[in-house]
Simulated assay, not measured.
Amino acid sequence: MAGSTLPLRALGRLLRAHRIRTGKSQLAAGLHIEISPQTLGRLEDGQKIKISTVQIASLLDYYGIVEPSAERTEALGLWEEVKQEIRATKLNQSSAGWWRAYSDQYANHFDHYLSLEATARRVTIFHLALIPGLLQHPDYRRAMIRIGFPDLSAVDVERRLELAARRQAMLVDRADSFSMKCLLSEAVLRHRPGGRKVMATQSRHLADLATRPNISLQIVPLDGDDHPGFVVQSFTLLEFPPLQSRNLTEPPVVYVEGYEGALYLEQSSVIDRHRQAIAGIERVALSESDTRQLFSRVAEECEA
């Protein structure tokens, strides 16, 4: 899903809805505008493909979306936003998709996550065992890299640390437009990648991050009551801002990462269940103030 953006995802979802409504197959619709059904499928999934304005207009004609109609105006308006983003990307290659310069340092599936994270207005994270990447101190991150990739060269280790630092920069650079809520099992503080000294540094780092207005951190105590996190496992919920020129908001995405891959879940019923899980986990979590105090206590314990 490399290259996915908010307007592109919205356009793809709209085109799929029109195709399904008219009973057209991906094969038939693709043949009509001379692209493969697989390419059309990528467009409907919100992926970047080579396609022209003439082809988009012809596809709308094929679906019976003709002038004058609000549906055609909406679809072509989204297409104009997609083209504007493409032009902006060409003019500012240094900031658009910057993470792809590090593509040799992360799994293929993570490219799509980074593109979603870069456009999200809010992320809500629940983790059972480890500190999320956006909150990791460089020493903690280095320890995790060494555990997962013990034979990695020193150069590649440093590149992965650079990638993590550039991701984390948005916590400051986008403080007015991006917020983060983390619900973390107390186990993330009891596991000690790199040893006690590293965990002391990481805990003090968390205590500092918790003072920022766009970051909310809460610990779920190990001796607390039952909560949905036992069943739902670790996940990230990403939410997006409205598109700039129209009254459309991209649906949230739940990201679930595993050892060998990841899932991107968008079904409304799945999103609802994860929202309910968040509410249930919050009910047993410590307050933000008590969480900051716990971070300080853990740091002191590890330094003792």
Rank of each mutant, 00 (worst) to 15 (best):
C302P: 01
T119A: 14
A299S: 14
V157Q: 12
A17M: 06
I219W: 03
H137A: 13
Q26E: 06
P68D: 10
Q55E: 13
F178Q: 11
L11D: 05
A279W: 00
E74N: 05
I271D: 00
T89Q: 10
R192F: 02
R87W: 07
V232E: 04
H274K: 03
M144A: 08
F110L: 13
D290W: 09
F110A: 11
G261K: 06
K50T: 13
S216Q: 15
T211L: 14
Q218L: 09
R166K: 15
N108Y: 04
L217A: 13
R292C: 03
V232I: 15
S36I: 11
R192P: 02
Q38D: 10
A29L: 08
H191K: 07
E44N: 12
T211A: 14
T119W: 02
T124S: 13
I51L: 00
V284Q: 02
A101M: 05
Q233H: 14
G23R: 07
R196Y: 05
I145T: 12
L134I: 11
L11C: 08
L248N: 01
H112T: 14
N108Q: 12
T53A: 11
Q202H: 02
E266C: 03
G261N: 07
A129H: 04
R174W: 02
S25L: 02
G224L: 00
A299T: 04
S287G: 15
S287L: 12
G258I: 10
E158H: 06
P221D: 06
